[in-house]
Amino acid sequence: MMSWVRFVFASTIFALVTLFALPLQYLFVKAGWNLQTKFPLRFHRIAAKLLGLRIHMHGDMATERPLLLAANHASWSDIVVLGSLKEISFIAKAEVADWPLFGMFAKLQRSVFVEREKRGKTHDQASEIATRLAAGDVMVLFAEGTTSDGNRVLPFKTSLFGAAQVAIRETSVETVTVQPVAIAYTRVHGVPMGRFHRPLISWPGDVPLGPSLIGLLKDGAIDVDVWFGEPMTIDSKTNRKTLARLMEERVRAMMLSSLLGRDLVTPAGESQESVIPVDSAILKDAKKL
C-alpha cells in the first residue's frame, strides 16, 4: 500500500515539475541562453530525488575541454543519474527522439541522435558530435551501444569514439580528453542488490519503459555509485579501437569496485597510492556476477 502512495505522490510532483520545466527549457534552447545547460541539471536533481536515487560520486569530471565521457549503460535512469551531477549532453540512439515525453526531454537537453546500424552515416554523426565537443559541450557516449543487465560491462563499440578525432581533424582543437565513467547500482533500501533485485533498475532493450518507470517510482531508495576515472588526452594519431578497449577496461574495473566491494581502482582527482592492479582473476569474478 505504501509503495502505491509513494508512486502517486512522486508521479504527481514529477508531472507538475515537468509541466513547469519543459516550456522554460524550450525557451532557453531557442534563445541560446547559457541556462539551456544549467537548467537540466536542476531538473535531473529533482527527478533523482523523486525516483529515490541516492547517488555517490567517486572522483570528479575532468576540467579539460573538449571532453568526451565514455560510460556503461544499464538503465534509462542513467540519464537522470549523470544529468544530476554535471552540465552534460548525451549521445542517444535515434529512436529515443520518437519516445513519448522522454524524446522531448532528450531533444531539450540537446542530445545528439545517432543511427548506429547505418555505417554510411557514421562520419556525419561523428562530425555533429565533434562540432559540439569543439564548442565546449561535454558529451556522454554510452559506448556499449545498448543497455546491459547492470551486472557487467558489455564490449564497447568503437565507431563513435572516432568523433574525438574528427573534432581534431575538422576543427581548431589539437587534442580531446576522453574520460571513463562507470555507473553501478549497488543497494535497494540499504540491502545489497543481487540478481533478484537487479530487474528493479536494469532495463534491457526488450523491457517496456512504462513498467520500469512505475516500478522505480513505487520502490525507490536505490544507491548508485558513479565513478569518474582517470582521463586520457588523445590526438590525431590515437587509434580509436585501442582507445575504446582502454576505456572499456577502466569502466569495468571501476564498476567492479562497487559490485565486488573492493578498492580496485582510484577515481580521478584522488591519491593514486592505494591503487590495486586489476588482474585477470578479478576480471573473471565479474563474469560470475
Score class of each variant (00 low, 15 high):
residue 3 S to V: 10
residue 3 S to Y: 12
residue 3 S to M: 14
residue 15 A to H: 13
residue 17 V to A: 07
residue 17 V to P: 06
residue 30 K to D: 06
residue 32 G to M: 05
residue 37 T to R: 14
residue 39 F to T: 05
residue 42 R to Y: 15
residue 42 R to F: 15
residue 48 A to P: 03
residue 50 L to Q: 08
residue 54 R to Y: 11
residue 57 M to D: 14
residue 58 H to Q: 13
residue 59 G to K: 00
residue 75 S to L: 02
residue 86 K to C: 15
residue 103 G to A: 09
residue 104 M to R: 14
residue 105 F to R: 04
residue 108 L to E: 01
residue 117 E to R: 14
residue 120 G to F: 08
residue 121 K to Q: 14
residue 122 T to Q: 13
residue 126 A to W: 00
residue 130 A to G: 11
residue 137 D to K: 02
residue 137 D to S: 09
residue 139 M to R: 03
residue 141 L to F: 13
residue 142 F to E: 07
residue 145 G to D: 03
residue 148 S to D: 01
residue 150 G to N: 03
residue 154 L to H: 05
residue 164 A to T: 00
residue 175 T to Y: 01
residue 182 A to C: 02
residue 186 T to C: 04
residue 189 H to Y: 13
residue 190 G to C: 00
residue 192 P to L: 03
residue 194 G to T: 00
residue 201 I to F: 08
residue 203 W to L: 12
residue 209 L to A: 11
residue 223 D to S: 08
residue 226 V to C: 07
residue 228 F to L: 10
residue 230 E to C: 12
residue 235 D to A: 05
residue 237 K to Q: 15
residue 256 L to Y: 01
residue 257 S to P: 04
residue 259 L to W: 04
residue 266 T to F: 12
residue 269 G to L: 00
residue 270 E to S: 15
residue 272 Q to E: 15
residue 279 D to V: 09
residue 285 D to C: 12
residue 287 K to G: 15
residue 287 K to D: 12
